[in-house]
């Protein structure tokens, strides 16, 4: 098992005819992901190295039955592509696109909730999801990860690679690595992914990597205390970041502690979650806890 992407994944990619879109879609296929199609309006009937391209998500669905969509289109078209994929019946949508307007993200989040409650959106502005040895959807450099029992959920891409690589070097692998993205309105939160890792038999320990801003880490702390029995190790980036050029008082009124790294680390530690001060320390704690819980490291 793993979470979200695995051997049953049937992937279609919006923006597959673009330079980045085709590069990463084909990379995902080389890794073993079942890439069934692509969507680019106006380019239906073409193919990208044998992958059929369709004009719309409805056409792609009819011909190839994808269960997973990857969104790689420019920011101004991304919201509509996500909603179109959901309307066509795709159950998992992974949006890599960076720079989508916040109001579009808000519209997507609330429309999915109202009209397509069964559809899960991960991202936008995320590196995607990798289940080592099974499937990769997105831009995570898969060669640094091996299959194993650590579940990783992170707001940042490169930081995930840093932590995952240190765990791999210590001889441990990952069940899945899920990048939820750092945008103001992400489709999936830490809580959503923690729930999946808690239910996943393969996952024995969860690494949560957060950063300053918002209150997703505080909400994760509450959820861990109530519903997660597996060990969780956390990392928060941004202790030395200067306070953002905050304008007016409204932001401070809402976030209270203003989403600082110190406040987030305190919230997690108050619920018994161990917080590493550097990516290296996170990996060390994770390895130490895994060593204590299982007799032999899983590679």
């Amino acid at each position: 098992m793993a979470v979200l992407v695995d051997n049953d994944t049937r992937l279609a990619v919006a923006g597959i005819t673009g330079r980045e879109g085709s590069f990463h879609a084909l990379n995902n296929r080389r890794y073993g992901t079942n890439l069934v199609g692509g969507v680019t309006p106006g380019k239906g009937g073409q193919d990208v190295e044998g992958v059929p391209v369709f004009d719309s998500w409805a056409d792609a669905m009819q011909a190839t039955q994808p269960n997973t969509a990857m969104i790689f289109v420019p920011p101004r078209f991304a919201a509509d592509s996500i909603l179109e994929a959901a309307a066509a019946g795709v159950s998992l949508i992974i949006a890599i696109t960076e720079g989508i307007p916040a109001h579009d993200e808000l519209r997507v989040y609330n429309t999915l909730k109202r009209d397509h409650p069964g559809t899960r959106l991960v991202g936008p502005n995320c590196p995607g999801i990798l289940s080592p040895g099974k499937a990769s959807v997105g831009i995570i450099p898969a060669s640094f990860f091996t299959p194993g029992n650590v579940g990783v959920v992170s707001r940042s891409g490169t930081l995930t690679y840093q932590i995952g690589n240190e765990i791999a070097q210590a001889g441990f692998g990952c069940s899945s690595i899920v990048g939820i993205g750092g945008d103001p309105v992400p489709g999936s939160s830490f809580v959503d992914i923690l729930e999946l890792f808690q239910a996943d038999e393969e996952t024995e320990l969860i690494v949560l990597s957060g950063e300053i801003g918002g209150s997703a880490e505080e909400e994760a702390a509450e959820y861990i205390a109530e519903s997660v029995t597996k060990p969780v190790v956390a990392y928060i980036a941004g202790f030395t970041a200067p306070p953002g050029k905050q304008m007016g008082h409204a932001g401070a009124i809402v976030s209270g502690s203003a989403g600082t790294a110190a406040a987030k680390a305190r919230a997690l530690e108050a619920k018994g979650v161990r917080v590493g001060r550097t990516p290296t320390e996170v990996a060390e704690i994770a390895v130490q806890m895994l060593g204590a819980s299982s007799s032999s490291p899983v590679r």
Binding site: S154, R155, S156, G157, T158, L159, T160, Q162, G182, S209, E211, I212, Y235, A237, G238, F239, T240, A241, A261, R277, T278, P279
Partner: peptide
């Protein structure tokens, strides 16, 4: 490269 890694670098 990447906002998260840069923030983490500042911290370290």
């Amino acid at each position: 490269n990447g906002a998260g890694l840069v923030m983490s670098t500042l911290d370290v």
